[in-house]
Amino acid sequence: MALLTLAEAKTQLQLTDTAAYDAELETYIDALTPVIERHTGPVESRTVTETVNAYGPLLALTQVPTVSLTSLTPVHSGGRAIAADEVALDGDAGVLRRLDGARFAGGPWVAVYVAGRDDIPPTINLAARLLLQHLWRTRYGAARGNPGGGEDFDVNEPIPGFGYAVPNRVLQLLESFKAPPGVA
């Protein structure tokens, strides 16, 4: 499931030409995902493989929300893999708990799981549309009279690691989906 489709991008930018901007828009759409996911954690579903440590009866995954667990195997030989149906997954927190109440012994563990969301919430989709509109405006500008022109969105400051600022209205929309500290 895509964060933003090409058709949604064209609608947001009021582009009526069916193919003239497609390749460029696809580049913009691809660039939106890491910016949005920096605030929300994974939005588009993806398989993640990572080595994690357990803390007693709990094991915390780093990419949340988590949709499902595929496998959980100890890094060191001699340990027993734990089947996905032997653990309870709190997907929002990315925390695994053994159903038998036992501790996660014999780790660290290699966890393979699907992170992201089954459905893209409309608020995140709108934030992606507004970010696209902002980026498109900074590329083409209102002075050239291109679609999406007009005043640029307000921004506070550039986000470290990204070469441009994210509009305040986008950050406000993403606030309720903000990933916990140390995650994503």
Rank of each mutant, 00 (worst) to 15 (best):
P57M: 15
V67Q: 06
A127N: 04
A88L: 15
A88H: 15
G41V: 01
L13Q: 02
L61V: 02
V64Q: 00
E44Q: 13
A60H: 08
F104A: 06
V75L: 09
G149V: 07
A7D: 13
D119F: 12
Q133A: 11
A184M: 13
M1G: 13
Y113A: 00
R117C: 07
A143Q: 15
T73W: 07
D17G: 12
R137K: 13
A143L: 14
T49P: 01
L126C: 06
G94Q: 03
V170K: 01
A60E: 09
P158C: 09
L32Q: 02
G145K: 07
A115M: 06
E151I: 13
D17P: 00
V48L: 01
Y164W: 14
N53Y: 13
V110N: 07
D90F: 05
G79A: 04
A7F: 10
A111R: 02
L99C: 09
T40E: 04
G148E: 06
T62R: 15
E37G: 02
V155Q: 05
Q63P: 04
P42Y: 07
L32N: 02
R117Q: 09
N53E: 15
G56D: 08
E24S: 15
H39A: 09
D118C: 11
T16S: 13
L25F: 06
P121N: 06
E44I: 11
D100G: 05
D154T: 14
R97Q: 14
A81H: 08
N125F: 03
A115G: 03
A19H: 14
A184F: 09
P158K: 14
V43L: 04
L89C: 02
L174N: 00
R97G: 08
N168I: 04
R98F: 00
P108F: 06
T5N: 05
A142R: 14
L135D: 08
P65H: 01
G163L: 12
D22Q: 05
D30Q: 14
F153Y: 12
I36V: 10
A179C: 01
A184W: 08
L58A: 12
T33W: 01
G79T: 03
S71K: 02
N168V: 03
P42V: 07
G148Q: 04
L25V: 08
L3A: 05
A31N: 10
V183G: 03
S68A: 15
V112K: 07
P167V: 02
P158R: 13
A19M: 12
K178T: 11
K10I: 00
E157P: 05
G94D: 03
H134W: 04
K10C: 03
A179E: 01
S68G: 10
A105G: 12
L6D: 03
L3F: 06
G145V: 05
T66F: 05
G107V: 01
L173G: 05
T70W: 10
L13T: 02
T18L: 13
G56Q: 11
E86Y: 07
S176Q: 13
L13P: 00
S77P: 08
Y113R: 01
T18N: 13
A19L: 14
